[in-house]
Design a protein around this nucleic acid. Sequence first.
DNA 1: TTCCTACTGTACTGCGAGTCCAGTCCGGCG
DNA 2: CGCCGGACTGGACTCGCAGTACAGTAGGAA
Lengths: 204, 204
Amino acid sequence: MDQKVDTRSRILDIAEAAVLEKGFEATSIEEIVAGAEISRGGFFYHFKDKNALARAMLERYIEVEDALYDDLFARARELNDDPLHCMLIGLKLLAEMLEEMPTGHPGCVIASTAYQDRLFDEGVRELNRQAILGWRKRFRGMFEEIAEQYEPREPVNMDALGDMVSGVVEGGLVLQRALREQNNASEQIMLFRTYLKLLFSSKH
Amino acid sequence: MDQKVDTRSRILDIAEAAVLEKGFEATSIEEIVAGAEISRGGFFYHFKDKNALARAMLERYIEVEDALYDDLFARARELNDDPLHCMLIGLKLLAEMLEEMPTGHPGCVIASTAYQDRLFDEGVRELNRQAILGWRKRFRGMFEEIAEQYEPREPVNMDALGDMVSGVVEGGLVLQRALREQNNASEQIMLFRTYLKLLFSSKH
DNA sequence: TTCCTACTGTACTGCGAGTCCAGTCCGGCG
DNA sequence: CGCCGGACTGGACTCGCAGTACAGTAGGAA
């Protein structure tokens, strides 16, 4: 029983690393089983097909990402109780985190799957959707709390503003991948941060 | 000679539509030749392999995109000579354009190729890179012109701000694809627009 | 008439996904 | 102790798709 759990997550580890480095399609089951030191039969014992692997990877990835955001903004909250400053600190921490990742951030599996659509079944796509909706909800909540104390200088749609966190991160990662530069994503986050500073620069 | 040009661009048309709808990998040469009503041999006569097709598609796409930006901001300039207002009008036009595309924007081939990296050779990747660097240059130029007349309220890196246009569009398109919603990309652009309004809200 | 360009058509290799299944190894349970 | 079921191994196979090779052809230009 224990070997099952071990092997399964070993497959996921290997697969995730490979997929983040070169994309899902370019990662063959052959090399995954080689890396995980199992047989092809063993792979298909754990995952019905590549789709099942993708789903499992996404589930795990989203959990990790959520936990990361939880932790990040919890730490920010400890440093400053004001919702605006908490957000600003959290974004700074996020930017720093992205910079520290030498290979660049786990290039967000989200974007990667979004652009390979038909390769995946409805389950994978729905998971993807729910993850982004979750982040929208999380950040919208934070922005609404901020707006209670700081009147936005311009009217903004809170859902869209919530999405902008994800969007800026995703967009930054796309740039980073395509440009082969180092810190585009973290720079973009810092620019978004100055946006928030300007937007919420007046007290009620 | 004429048939060559015709066939070649007919292949590119069919391929581009298919790739934007379902991704490069999911598009088979088989279906391209079926759509273009040529033989497999005919396809390989025009394109050495799928990589050559990708390169040609990217080249064409980037040209169109550049022409589009040229046109957009030229129209904006006609409406208002002030660089800031020209930029704000241009972004509004861009947002409107994205909204009007029923299937969503030609989901930016850039992001799509960035996340399938290893599928493509160095030539394709370099093209991708140059396209984004070109946009960076274009928008940085515009922002510098703006900054001459409007002191930025917060210090910003002009390269990063230039990248933010591309980043916000790319990020918005990722969200739109993943969420299967309608106007995420245009909403994100409009938010970015309010950022610029706030950032450059003081005259020199 | 000849030559070239733009193909068609067929036949082949090779790779990776996915299927099937027979056999093995091992820990728990009666 | 035996045997049962879960976690595999290993090999053989099908299928779809990329890419190669090459022989043949239709039609316009010189």
